[in-house]
Design a binder for these strands. Structure first.
Lengths: 196, 196
DNA sequence: CGTCAATTGGAGCGATGACTACAAAACGAC
DNA sequence: GTCGTTTTGTAGTCATCGCTCCAATTGACG
């Protein structure tokens, strides 16, 4: 029994996400968001509290929608061999980073600076997520090792390599590499997990 | 026959570089630079003209000093096999990205946003450099191909992979990975160039 | 219709952004 | 010492930042 919001929270978050995705946290101002969403700044603050919180919610939306297929590959337990697991993960990432109608690269990697957690609020929140990604990949590789598969390096090194590859793919996408090129890089990186 | 500058241009550029390196172009303000260098803003503008130009000169200094060993590996024609070439390049980069007493990661990759050239002045200048890096790597790989060495993929894919690996290493360094870990990733990535 | 609750647009807050105007200061040349 | 040249610090320009205050608006409910 009150005035209804002119734009739904979901719609607002999706529009905010796309701005953060394209320009990053620092270069996206409240005025930009306000104009893109079509509501005044006061409505944004009434709904989301702060720019930092809006970013957090936008990234959460990103992870649970756009990035869901990629995250699903992260702990895909039916991926076949380790190489096939890595290929599935990196190809899915490459696909996400070159989706038509959306900004290039990864919204989380590129949306916040890549600095240490204390550099900015946005860095702090994405830093924790990246740690989780690394941990998840490493667990999956450890499982391959335990089941007897020979890998080309330790799970620690390979987890860092795969996460680094995802970030490299994101940056290549930002710089204009097309999907075909990214898929080639993804395939090559995945293939490198082959044991001796 | 005029008043001498209180801080040399070289010293100013080195200090400016380290700030841009650590915080990036956008998050480094003229006031920050002024305080770190120990001169007023007017001196900075008198010496360098604009923030954009100061950044350009700082990055040029970075490339010609700190990054010189890494750039030297880029077209090292006495590197042995392609795998050895890649290993030399990536290990030198890993070393640069974890130098004691300097910010983590690559000043050029992390100092400017990773967006398209039109996103910001800083992006525009680094974009051109990245294109050159790719081209140089590819030429080197083509030379290996022409001399009969079998590679694991096309020079186009491998050049993108190697540049992507450098950027991945830089980001891992920014997130706190230590030198040993980066060296492991570098070795692994280089090893992947082995022909079939 | 009147009431209450939530949202809205707009105006404006203090802080900070890049940048500049200007006069005092510091040298070499004379 | 005086002059000319360049650098210096200070103060201030206008724009924009994240954010807030407030009165007007919009509905469902009685």
């Amino acid at each position: 029994m009150a005035r209804p919001r002119s734009v739904s929270k979901e719609d607002s978050l999706e529009l905010a996400l796309q701005l953060f995705w394209e320009r990053g946290y620092d270069l996206t101002s409240i005025a930009d968001l306000s104009a893109a969403i079509g509501v005044g700044p006061s409505s944004l603050y009434n709904s989301f509290g702060s720019k930092e919180n809006l970013f957090r919610l936008a990234i959460e939306r990103y992870l649970s929608t756009h990035a869901a297929p990629t995250l699903g590959r992260l702990d895909d337990k039916d991926a076949g061999t380790a190489v096939e697991y890595a290929r599935g993960l990196l190809r899915e990432a490459a696909k996400l980073y070159t989706s038509k109608g959306f900004p290039r690269g990864c919204a989380m990697f590129e949306g916040a600076g890549s600095g240490p957690p204390e550099q900015s609020p946005a860095c702090a929140m994405t830093h924790a997520i990246k740690r989780d990604l690394n941990k998840t990949i490493r667990k999956r590789l450890d499982a391959y090792s335990r089941s007897g598969e020979m890998l080309s390096a330790s799970s620690k090194v390979l987890a860092a390599f795969l996460l680094g590859s995802m970030r490299g793919l994101s940056q290549l996408a930002c710089d204009g590499a097309n999907r075909t090129e990214l898929m080639g890089v993804a395939d090559h990186a995945a293939q490198s997990l082959t044991g001796p």
